[in-house]
């Protein structure tokens, strides 16, 4: 029975990782109706920034536990610098264009950032594994898991809880929900949609960067690491229903579990298991599991 437990644990860890990335994507789509391909680049930027900061921190001989602060700092920095830069500097000129054109705009941003990352950090891999091993490991069902993975699950739950609370309980959250539901009416009611967009995009960028920063200690940070993440996060968000937070959570869980089961029982189908799930879900529920309401055009 240990096997099933391993499938579930692996699935949960993978789902948590996916959720942190997907929630930012769904947030940006929900509010701004932009399917942001550059999300993968933000993820990579977060990873690179984290690798650089943690590397500096450790080589300066400071307390290793401070490296966790560096991971978070990296994500915040990337969010605050890159988010506003791209939203104010580029995207705001594009609002009102077709959704697909906006996808292409972010694709262009993605291409540019890919090379920009290469110009800044070079093509060599970076890695900072210290934060990964620092917390030790624990044994479940005869298998060893690093505590860091458990921490990832906790972070992911915190992010989810924070979103749920913020949207339901705070004024800002309610304003955000209003903009998601109807941008025009919200603007008419006096909500500063411009500001909401800026904050949303910055927050979304920060979440992608958090995903990257938290992943950095477990991988080697290399060019191209963002490409794979994008489509995966897309699949999650589409399965869950674009723009839905609950959907992002459920989508992550489904994709994580399916992938984990595939790896354990049928490694051969791992490569397209995610897409197969996406196709099945979309065929059964054409707008994803949690569909947003849409006005019908007459």
């Amino acid at each position: 029975m240990g096997h099933v437990l391993a499938v579930v644990i692996d699935g949960i860890i993978y789902s948590s990782w996916l959720f942190i990335i997907a929630v930012g994507l769904t947030l940006i789509y929900g509010v701004m109706k932009i399917l942001n391909l550059a999300h993968g680049s933000f993820y990579a930027l977060g990873a690179y920034a984290a690798a650089s900061l943690v590397g500096r921190w450790l080589s300066a001989g400071r307390a290793p536990f401070g490296s966790y602060a560096m991971l978070i700092l990296a994500a915040i920095l990337v969010g605050l610098v890159v988010g506003p830069l791209i939203e104010r500097g580029l995207l705001r000129f594009m609002y009102g264009k077709d959704e697909i054109v906006l996808v292409l705009v972010t694709y262009a941003v993605f291409l540019i950032l890919e090379d920009a990352i290469k110009l800044v950090w070079g093509v060599d891999a970076y890695f900072v594994s210290e934060p990964y091993g620092l917390l030790g490991s624990l044994s479940i069902a005869g298998l060893t898991y690093p505590v860091y993975s458990a921490a990832l699950v906790v972070v992911s739950l915190l992010v989810g809880a924070a979103f749920a609370l913020a949207l339901k309980r705070t004024r800002q959250g309610k304003l955000l929900t209003a903009v998601i539901q109807d941008r025009e009416i919200s603007a008419a009611m006096g909500i500063d949609v411009r500001r909401v967009y800026l904050v949303t995009f910055t927050l979304g960028t920060m979440l992608a960067a958090t995903g990257g920063a938290l992943t950095a200690p477990t991988v080697s940070v290399v060019p191209g690491m963002g490409v794979e993440v994008i489509v995966l996060a897309f699949a999650v968000v589409v399965i869950g229903g674009l723009g839905s937070f609950a959907g992002a959570a459920l989508g992550s869980l489904i994709v994580g579990m399916v992938r984990s089961a595939a790896v354990h029982y049928l490694p051969a189908v791992e490569l397209f298991s995610v897409y197969a799930v996406m196709a099945v879900v979309l065929i059964a529920r054409p707008k994803g599991l949690f569909r947003a309401l849409e006005a019908r055009k007459i």
């Binding site: 399917l35 489509v231 589409v238 979309l282």
Partner: peptide, 16 residues
Amino acid sequence: IFFAMLSLAFSMILYG
């Protein structure tokens, strides 16, 4: 976007 994504899913399954 759903048309776009569902067709993407099919092409990725072929890829796999």
